Computed example of a mutant assay.
Amino acid sequence: MTQAAPLSATARDPAPAIFAPRGGLLPRLVDWILRHPRVFVFLMVLPITLWLGLVYVGSLIALLIQSFFSIDEFSGLVVREFTLKTYGELLRPYNFDIILRTVLMAASVTVASAILAFPIAYFAARYARGRWKAVFYLGIMLPLWSSYLVKVYAWKLVLAKEGILTWLFAKLHLTWLLEAVLAVPVIGGNSLSVSYLGTFIVFTYIWLPYMILPVQASLERVPATLTEAAADLGATPRQNFRLVILPLALPGVVAGSIFTFSLTLGDYIIPQIIGSSRLFIGQAVYTQQGTAGNIPLAAAFTVVPIVIMGIYLWAARRMGAFDAL
């Protein structure tokens, strides 16, 4: 047997590290963090978690605590004692009407946005290609680039009694139709700019893009082969839409409704500029907190949309709506 040659000094010594360990406590700590990905991810997420936990969630908890206080009717000072008196005030006819009015408006805007958004989103998902799809996205996103207040005040001028819409109805000899609509109880008024119908139109216009995009994303996920297979099996276009397309696109509709419903529920600027003097929840919060100084009642009003949206989000999650966001 031949004896193996002894290893050279170069072969016995380990190869030098590419980066030599750095001295000092802080560099060593940084190196240790980089060698442990989970710790690194935790430290990266920690600031935003603290922000959401302390500022956002903390403010909601403080708001909830304020809603269990009451205000002294004689001195106008907040009595910091646990009571359900403030929530009892929400059930008074005047305050309950505000909640009901806001929920009905939010639901109406959501339904109208879904009806208007679906054909637009379907065309974009099925037929728009290349440059036309870019035009579609530009047309949907362009209104979002302009100022929110500018759009609302522009609609105020359009819907006014001396606005272009009234002029257009007059030119088409349809003034009688506009007057008949404005004469309808509840939704009518002296003009569209001071009516619930005008508020509904502006809400729908402002939040419509937030419905179109999730619906379009949901329809993009529906394979064209499914509709072709349904047609081959004898399904009519109506059956194809009702049994194939709509169930698969429903999560996108629900996802869009999260935006339209919640944004309408909490908005106070549009009803303040366009509409009657009857308050919505956002206006009630602004009035009670700013003008009346009744912070507990304002906090109780704020809890209402939080509870409603909590239930709504739970139902939306059960329907898989978050997959279309």
Rank of each mutant, 00 (worst) to 15 (best):
L177G: 03
M141G: 12
Y153V: 02
G130V: 03
Y153G: 05
H173A: 00
S147F: 09
R131F: 15
V184C: 06
V158A: 05
V111R: 01
P185F: 05
F136R: 12
G139F: 15
F123R: 14
W167R: 11
Y148G: 05
L165C: 07
P143L: 09
R126Q: 10
L144Q: 12
Y148E: 08
M141Q: 13
L165D: 06
R126D: 04
W167D: 11
F169R: 00
S147K: 11
Y148L: 09
P143W: 07
R131Y: 14
W155R: 01
L177P: 01
K161S: 06
T166N: 10
L182H: 05
A154Q: 04
P119I: 05
S113H: 01
L157G: 09
R126L: 04
K133W: 14
H173D: 06
Y148W: 09
R129T: 14
Y127M: 14
T110F: 05
Y122I: 09
A180M: 04
A160F: 09
V150G: 10
P119G: 07
A112S: 07
L174G: 06
G130M: 08
R126P: 05
K133F: 14
I140W: 11
L177K: 03
M141D: 12
V158N: 02
A124G: 04
E162Q: 09
L138N: 11
V152P: 02
V150W: 09
I140A: 06
L157V: 06
S147N: 10
T166Y: 02
P143Y: 11
A125C: 11
R126E: 07
W167G: 11
L159T: 03
I120W: 09
V150L: 13
L182M: 00
T175F: 00
S113V: 00
A180F: 04
L165A: 02
W132P: 13
A160E: 03
Y137M: 15
V152Q: 02
V111W: 10
W176R: 09
